[in-house]
């Protein structure tokens, strides 16, 4: 199984990699890291600069977002399903995601 850290190594050489400034990032892991979700999130924030604000995103996503992106996505699964059903999808770095998923990724990138 690929761990998150090995995934990060794999991503390091890819076009999806994005280096975050030291001390920043929503991930609880240590240090500056490049992650897939952050790259996706950065793409979202670039496309929707008005949401490059943690408070705005947290308010939009609601309390279910919590502090861990994977857990947040699980909690938000019904909302994500509603997004797809309603056609609220976005394409970020090639990924076709629900708007909620994109916002969670955006939060990870801040």
């Amino acid at each position: 199984m690929i761990t998150r850290r090995s995934a990060l190594r794999l991503l390091a050489g890819s076009g999806l990699a994005l280096t975050m400034p030291p001390g920043c990032g929503w991930w609880s892991g240590p240090g500056p890291e490049a992650t897939g979700i952050e790259a996706v999130g950065e793409a979202y924030l670039t496309a929707v600069p008005a949401e490059r604000d943690e408070a705005v995103l947290r308010a939009t996503l609601g309390p279910a977002v919590g502090t861990d992106p994977a857990a947040a996505l699980a909690r938000l699964a019904p909302v994500i399903a509603e997004d797809f059903a309603a056609g609220r999808t976005v394409v970020l770095d090639g990924w076709v995601l629900s708007l909620t998923e994109a916002r969670v990724a955006g939060l990870a990138a801040i």
Partner: peptide, 16 residues
């Protein structure tokens, strides 16, 4: 296209 490693890693990060 994104590499398979990208795909797997990204999906792990997104959806676990």
């Amino acid at each position: 296209a994104p590499s398979p490693a990208d795909v797997r890693a990204l999906y792990e990060a997104v959806a676990s």
